[in-house]
Write a protein that binds this DNA or RNA. Structure first.
Length: 959
RNA sequence: GCGCCGGUAGCUCAGUUGGUUAGAGCGUACGACUGAUAAUCGUAAGGUCGGAGGUUCAAAUCCUCCUCGGCGCACCA
């Protein structure tokens, strides 16, 4: 080893090099769980509450996730945004108490539990309802535990040990109370409508529970003869087309459109080249929409046909048809009405619509609209999707299979009906059609329209209606983003009455007694007894308690029927505001904010709105914030089949929760956001950079004490400029937090740390920090500013990276003053307005421009291998702008640009000087600095006696 | 099918009421340093602003159509 090498090392000991135990690498996957344990043990949540006890409340009301399954990126995103909101509000000086909740009732859990029972060889029918519900309860409880752990792993702060659950007895009672309020207000009625029915799950489904998938249907064209043909139509038959042959036994009418042009057609010949005989035969006289005739004849393998005459729609008015199954099983001998219908079009089918009022919304309304009686509508299909005895000859045949592996596949109803139609000579043609068809979102099995008695909440129309109240409430709500208002408004404007009954076991019962006329009993005393019983024993109380106990002396149980349906789970979740915000002392009603995915416009936002408006006349929230969905790195939806699913657990295990949180904070969460390896990689890089900046602050403040502190007035301009920037950035970040604009806050924070601090301020002051005497004013000012920066940055970082912020806080040098037990007990600190100095900032903005010219010039010389370290350089700066030259003269350009020397001149630049396009008046020439290199500070200065010896400044500093 | 939202450098995002050569950070490449070192600093490359028309003296920004993606609604007799 050479001598000068050793001497360098000797001087190294005289430097004030940064020192800290704070590690450069985060090691988050290991460290974060320990931090969670520590927060639990110290009771951080309780401390936060106690600390904020008397502050103004800010309530973000949690939309309950469903207590089933592990977290996915969507739920992680959702809870992380909520946590960002809650933490920033808390640190901004509010009491932001976050009470998480879970949605526990409903089909998905029931489905899983049924599966489990089946696995043990027990069919649902064999399991007593109370035992079944007990299992559901246990199942939900299990997943609540799992999800709680997973949410906590993400660093979500909240009342985890006292959350709300829709299955708590008190909650179930509260939901009963809310529902009975609707009843008392006369908003609940029993209707009989065709509704979506899932034969596999044997329940009615709301629109929210339906999804559309492709389904292969058998289509048929069916001929209906006239009972008594209108003049000129003797022997003619009306043709319909349907994709649901199984609804033919329920057919009671055929609709035609008044604006459609119909014609009477006669079959001349049918195709002979087939291996089977077409159902159509020469001489058949058929009535069809003109625009569809050719298509129909094509399907029927008719070779040639002729059009005989027009059939005006008026001619069909009032006509009666024979049912195509007339005589089958000695039945179907009633008349089929021809009805006019606006819904009939001639762009598909035959121009005539087969109408089975028990199996379609439009069919039902067409029937009622014609003034035909409700009780003439048959119930041909039972809850199990099999024909009842109202479909003579087909009893027991299933539309869809409901059991085993083939559940959801076509049953034997269609083939049997088609066979019967063929026997009757009513079939004209058949075919297959692949089209989108409603399916249950849970079982993925197709559903059918079925006419059953159900309970509804009347949303109504016009003045005084629930709809009107809700629309008014929407106007009074703030939406983030503003476009959300259109969406919710559109849905509320259009939605039908709220179907709230379900024929299931796991949920809050519809606690109604119905009298002989079908009207629900409304009696306060009875309702009170019901409420008390449910509060004590849960939903089971409704089913297990004898009716007489509820009804009391006033009513005879024999006069009433007890409803055994349960409530739609959306009603449960719509009540969360009542049993959480209102019933808990540590929250308040209405909520300041509901924050969920944009799909909840149709879900929770709406159910809560209707519930709140129905019972309390206003929305339970003041504002709604929506986030988008998590997509893969190419912008596609994550799905198992695409193999592009990423789980939050993978992220926390590989990188840590703080990384996941940075991903959230740096993304535009109001839109759909992407996630993938590269995107998370950026979050990791940003994290490292920020972590190192904080580490540098910690290490630079090693041994700092209050005595070092310098008044701002006594600080160099550079320090004051940085404090000005801090003020600016702090304002920007705080304002962004207030607007829930986390990406803007994150951007401001990380760009400040990178550009202003790491690449500019720290770089310039490194020499001072390492080499100047501890007593030097400049160094003290530098350390004072570093202390101020650290204090603010750790607070601003805390909501985004709660783990890392806490770790930084742990490593705060003792001299920074008294500490709280956790960084999260701090609030954001105001940066004194006196730090703000626009004039100074403008000057330094210009100086940074000059600096960029110098660093660019150095880089040129570096590429020419003339110099290496910038301290080897001396810069000759020439400025052709007197004011700018004066400004440059007021600072130490060498220090600013981290060169050893600098000269400044006015006027024209020499040839070959470096320039930048945006700095037209600045030119820089670089030469090697004259003198020897100081062995301590490495600057090349004329006052260094020999290479490796000390410069004057260092000689003083080491005395 | 209809409605809403969105498509700006490899990635994440800025781009105010339309106005000079469209910005930042990260990443990349190259280089420097070796006293923030699995760090730090510098320089550079990189975009026909999803596409096509149109309005305008002037459009990433306004209009129309198309396309891709997401969400929602609906129909399918």
């Amino acid at each position: 080893m050479a001598d000068d090498q050793r001497s360098k090392n000797d001087y190294k000991d005289t430097l004030f090099l940064p020192a800290t135990d704070f590690p450069m690498r985060g090691g988050l996957p290991k460290k974060e769980p320990q931090m969670i344990t520590r927060w639990d043990e110290m009771g951080l949540y309780a401390m936060l509450r106690a600390d904020a006890k008397d502050r103004e409340k800010f309530v973000l009301h949690d939309g309950p996730p469903y207590a089933n399954g592990h977290l996915h990126m969507g739920t992680a995103l959702n809870k992380t945004i909520k946590d960002l909101i809650v933490r920033t509000r808390q640190m901004a000086g509010f009491d932001a108490n976050y009470v998480p909740g879970w949605d526990c009732h409903g089909l998905p859990i029931e489905w899983k539990v049924e599966e489990a029972f089946r696995g043990k060889g027990r069919k649902k029918g064999d399991v007593p309802p109370s035992e079944f519900r007990e299992e559901c309860r246990a199942y939900a409880a299990k997943w609540i535990d799992i999800q709680r752990t997973e949410f906590k792993r993400l660093g979500i702060e909240g009342d985890w040990w006292n959350p709300y659950k829709t299955m708590d007895f008190t909650t179930e009672a509260a939901i009963v109370r809310e529902f009975l309020t609707f009843v008392e207000k006369g908003l609940v009625y029993r209707g009989s409508k065709p509704i979506m029915w899932s034969p596999v799950e044997q329940t009615a489904l709301a629109e929210a529970e339906i999804e559309y998938h492709d389904h292969q249907s058998t289509t048929i064209w069916v001929k209906f003869p006239f009972v008594q043909a209108p003049e000129g139509l003797e022997g003619a038959q009306v043709v319909i087309w349907t994709t649901t042959p199984w609804t033919i036994p329920a057919n009671r009418a055929v609709c035609y459109g008044e604006g459609i042009s119909y014609g009477l057609y006669e079959v001349e010949s049918v195709r002979q080249d087939l291996e089977f005989a077409p159902f159509a035969a020469p001489g058949d006289r058929l009535i069809l929409a003109d625009s569809l005739a050719e298509e129909v004849f094509g399907a029927a393998f008719v070779d040639t046909f002729k059009r005989i005459e027009d059939v005006p729609a008026t001619k069909l008015s009032g006509a009666k048809l024979k049912h195509p199954l007339n005589g089958h099983a000695d039945s179907y001998d009633f008349d089929v009405h021809m009805l006019s219908g606006d819904h009939v079009t001639d762009d598909a089918g035959t121009g005539f619509v087969h109408t089975a009022p028990s199996h379609g919304q439009e069919d039902y309304f067409a029937w009622l609209g014609a003034g035909l009686p409700l009780d003439a509508i048959p119930y041909t299909v039972g809850p199990d999707g099999a024909y009842t005895d109202e479909a003579p000859g087909f009893e027991g045949r299933q539309v869809f299979r409901t059991e085993g592996k083939k559940a959801g596949k076509d049953g034997d109803a269609n083939p049997e009906v088609i066979k019967a139609l063929v026997e009757k000579g009513s079939l004209l043609a058949r075919g297959r059609l692949k089209h989108s068809y409603p399916h249950s979102w849970r079982s993925k099995a197709p559903v059918l329209f079925r006419n059953t008695p159900q309970w509804f909440i009347r949303v109504g129309q016009g003045e005084g209606s629930l709809r009107e109240t809700a629309l008014k409430a929407i106007d009074e709500t703030t939406f983030y983003p503003p476009s959300g208002v259109n969406r919710l408004r559109g849905m509320v404007e259009q939605r039908p009455d709220w179907l709230v009954s379900r024929q299931r076991a796991w949920g809050v019962p519809i606690t109604l007694f119905v009298d002989k006329s079908g009207e629900p009993l409304v009696d306060e005393a009875v309702n009170k007894r019901i409420y008390d019983a449910v509060a004590e024993k849960g939903a089971d109380a409704w089913f297990d308690t004898p009716d007489a106990e509820f009804l009391g002396d006033k009513y005879d149980p024999a006069d009433f029927e007890k409803v055994t349906d349960i409530l739609d789970v959306w009603f449960d979740s719509g009540c969360t505001h009542a049993f959480t915000l209102e019933d808990r002392d540590d929250l308040q009603w209405p909520a300041d904010l509901y924050m969920e995915g944009s799909d909840q416009h149709r879900g929770w936002f709406q159910s809560s709105l209707l519930e709140g408006c129905g019972t309390r006349g206003r929305a339970p929230y003041k504002a709604i914030f929506t986030h988008g969905f998590v997509l893969d790195d190419k912008g596609l939806k994550m799905s198992k089949s695409l193999g592009n699913v990423m789980l939050p657990e993978q992220v926390t295990q590989k990188f840590g929760a703080d990384i996941l949180r940075i991903w959230v904070a740096s993304s535009d969460v109001q839109e759909d956001i992407r996630v993938g390896d590269e995107i998370l990689g950026s979050a990791v890089d940003a994290y490292r950079k920020l972590r190192n900046t904080l580490r540098y602050l910690l290490s630079g403040l090693d041994g700092y004490t209050e005595e070092e502190r310098v008044d701002v007035a006594d600080m160099p301009e550079l320090e004051r400029y940085i404090l000005h920037r801090l003020h600016e950035v702090n304002e920007k970040i705080r304002a962004s937090f207030d607007a829930y604009n986390f990406k803007a806050a994150w951007r401001a924070l990380s760009e400040f740390a990178i550009q202003d601090l790491s690449a500019f301020y720290f770089d310039i002051r490194k020499d001072c920090l390492y080499c100047d005497a501890p007593s030097s004013l400049k160094r003290r000012a530098n350390r004072t500013v570093m202390a101020i920066l650290l204090d603010h940055l750790v607070r601003l970082l805390a909501p985004v990276c709660p783990f890392t912020a806490e770790e930084v806080y742990d490593h705060f040098p003792a001299g920074l003053g008294e500490k709280k037990p956790s960084v999260h007990l701090l609030q954001f600190a105001d940066v004194p307005g006196s730090y703000r100095d626009e004039a100074l900032a403008e000057r330094w903005q210009k100086l940074r421009g000059i600096r960029r010219v110098i660093t660019g010039a150095i880089e040129e010389k570096r590429n020419e291998k003339l110099i290496g370290a910038s301290l080897e350089a001396a810069s000759g700066v020439v400025i052709d702008d007197p004011a700018l030259a004066d400004l440059a003269a007021s600072v130490d350009l060498a220090e600013l640009s981290i060169t050893s020397q600098a000269t400044l001149a006015n006027g024209q630049a020499p040839d070959g000087a470096h320039r930048l396009p945006d700095q037209p008046n600045v030119a820089v020439s670089i030469s090697k600095a004259a003198g020897e290199k100081c062995g301590r500070c490495w600057r090349v200065l004329p006052d260094v006696p020999e290479d490796g010896a000390l410069c004057g400044r260092c000689a003083d500093a080491t005395k």
